[in-house]
Amino acid sequence: MRRLQRIVHVEDDESIRAIAKVALERVGSFTLLSCASGNEALEKTAQFAPDMILLDVMMPGLDGPTTLKKLRETMDLTEVAIVFMTAKVQSSEIEYYKSIGACNVVLKPFDVMTLSEQLGKYWTEFNGE
């Protein structure tokens, strides 16, 4: 199994981007590309060649699901684990994200110290354990 190394994080809120940066780069030692909007992600993701994309669901302009759809038009995502971040915990909601290609969901607010670990688990699952 490939190691999880490169992660794109798409989130409109600067404070959450900053704290996720600590969680993923410092606690998790991943290589991170932070994007402030769906459009920025569309510009930069393909070149960054991520292992995983972490997408906030609700953003102004392009929301998470739309960003994912557009990304898929520009690049091959079959090898990329897609994880949504949301505050909604309804299981129907989670099912919906899975149906559009997410491998799992991170619930907000997330825990800074364990986020990396959680993504690591999702990565293992994504690769068929």
Binding site: D12, D13, S15, I19, M58, P60, A87, K108, F110
Partner: peptide, 15 residues
């Protein structure tokens, strides 16, 4: 609506 969503998310994240 957008502003409250954004700030709620980060406020909760920061405790």
């Amino acid at each position: 609506y957008e502003a409250s969503h954004r700030l709620a998310g980060s406020a909760l994240t920061f405790g």
